[in-house]
């Protein structure tokens, strides 16, 4: 009965899409609050960099990155599921999606880890 797609049922993906969606929504408000209400005085490059370079924030940002990449890649995969049916084309498009997903994750994590205040 199954022509295409992996043997997984898709239950986890359905569930986690919603979980990650809620997490992203929460972090969006958090980001907004922190940027516009929690900083004293004018926003400067130094203040932002100090915050972004702290280990706590780096950890938070990496978590946010993982959820965001998962949510985006899963979402695009669903769009591909709707419109692309030929096995060959699916292998190509989903393969590209995996590559882009891993790339964003890697580059993103590297960037976050290497953030430091210019001295």
């Amino acid at each position: 009965m199954k022509y295409f797609g992996s043997g997984r049922s898709g239950a986890f993906d359905w569930f986690f899409q919603r979980v990650s969606g809620i997490v992203l929504l929460v972090t969006l408000f958090l980001h907004f609050y922190v940027m516009h209400f929690a900083i004293e005085g004018p926003i400067t490059y130094e203040k932002v960099m100090v915050r972004l370079s702290s280990p706590g924030w780096k950890a938070l940002d990496i978590v946010f990155l993982i959820f965001a990449v998962y949510h985006a890649v899963n979402g695009f995969k669903l769009i591909i599921d709707d419109y692309v049916h030929s096995t060959v084309l699916r292998a190509v498009t989903i393969g590209l999606l995996w590559v882009m997903g891993i790339a964003f994750l890697t580059i993103g994590i590297m960037t976050i880890v290497n953030l430091r205040v210019q001295s």
């Binding site: 199954k2 997984r8 049922s9 898709g10 993906d13 669903l78």
Partner: peptide, 11 residues
């Protein structure tokens, strides 16, 4: 029904 083409295809 616990399948990619079962309940989980409902968006």
């Amino acid at each position: 029904i616990n399948d990619r083409h079962g309940v989980w295809r409902c968006h």
